[in-house]
Amino acid sequence: MRLSFLEPLYKQSGPFASVYLDTSRDSAVADPDTAIALRWRHLRDALMSEGADRSTITAVADLVGSDTEVPGPHGQAVFTAHGHAALLDELPLPPTRDTAHFGTLPDTMPLIVQHAPGIPYLAVHVRYGGRHSTDATGTVRVDAEAGTWPLTKVAPGHHLHEEIPVGDWPRAAQVIGRELEGHARRTDCEAVVVAGDVWARGILVNRLPPPLRGHVTTVEGTGEWVPGRALLEQRLESLFSGRMAAHDRGLLDVFLAQRAHGGATAEGLSAAVSALQRGRVKALLLNNHPESPLRLWVGPESGQLALTEEELRSYGVQDVREERADAALTRALVGTRAELVLVPERELRLHEGVGVLLRYPLPRNDPGAPGARRP
């Protein structure tokens, strides 16, 4: 996963307020605005207890609940610094629990987790409006959306809508197929999911360009598209559940192959920190453990991180703070433009939950190298 969406956040200096809360406005809640205000009140108290100033509280309050146009279950991630908005993002799902943190580094891991798996896809829904395929007065209605799963749940991608006389459908399907191929090429599409009327969708699939046709999955059923939500959302949820993006899967496969042959990999927090300090990380692999007690010491710059305060001060860093390990690692990844791969433990259990795929092999006597002697 590329973390470029976090770059604007790390261009600013801390301290940061990081707030995650449920901002759903669905029929299950009689008065959602009051519920959101109550949840924010609890988080506000938490921020104040951690030392947040009045300008920070005001900045967060101005952003909380501003997503009134987003329907269905969802949440918000709000980051502020020095009384100003630093980053605002919609969460495809409400957070497991509402949280607030005020500290040197932003708490970005819950946001990253909700961006995963980050699968680029095309969803296509084809509806035939006549009584049968020979009805000359009927129409074929096509809705298509190019997006990245699961973000399109709350941030819809490019949407295409066409309504075509049934007699023109075989020819028009070929034209639409070429247009869909263009979207797929621009987004490195991994999956094309097609639903709707069997006859009409069959014509479209058979007229798709061959490279695109190889990525097609047809799903049963029809349904109305809900504006502001992903097209075919429930079917995409079932299809992509537990799946890694192909790009991340490729990085994991390279890591496993390199590890098997003693190549450019390392595991454990110490090895990851050492490699990040030197800008050697191509991708960091992480078993996400939100409850992890692991901490690191950090300085003002992204590459200033260490296992101990003494180590960091030995590099000449004076302004040091202790922060969550995942927050420190994430900042270092963004600063060096390395990638992050969230690896389910059922796929691979990493030592201390952390592994690194290196840009090049470490010298054999390097402390982070596999098999190197340690003091």
Score class of each variant (00 low, 15 high):
S4A: 15
L6S: 11
K11A: 10
S13A: 15
Y20E: 13
T23H: 02
S24Q: 12
A35K: 04
W40D: 08
W40C: 13
T58M: 07
V60S: 06
L63H: 03
P95Y: 14
R97D: 14
R97C: 14
T99N: 11
Q114A: 13
A116C: 11
Y121G: 08
H125R: 14
Y128D: 15
A136K: 02
G138F: 05
T139M: 09
E145W: 05
E145Y: 05
E145S: 09
T148Q: 00
V154H: 05
E162W: 03
V166Y: 00
G167W: 00
I176H: 00
T187N: 10
V198G: 03
I203T: 14
P210C: 05
V219Y: 01
W225K: 11
V226I: 15
E237T: 15
R249F: 07
L256E: 15
H261F: 02
A272T: 03
V273H: 02
L286A: 07
N287I: 06
H289M: 07
S292C: 04
V298H: 03
S302N: 12
A306I: 04
E311S: 11
Q318A: 09
R324M: 11
R324K: 13
R331C: 02
R331W: 00
E339A: 12
P361D: 07
R364Y: 02
D366V: 05
D366Q: 03
P367F: 01
A369N: 05
P370G: 07
P375Y: 06
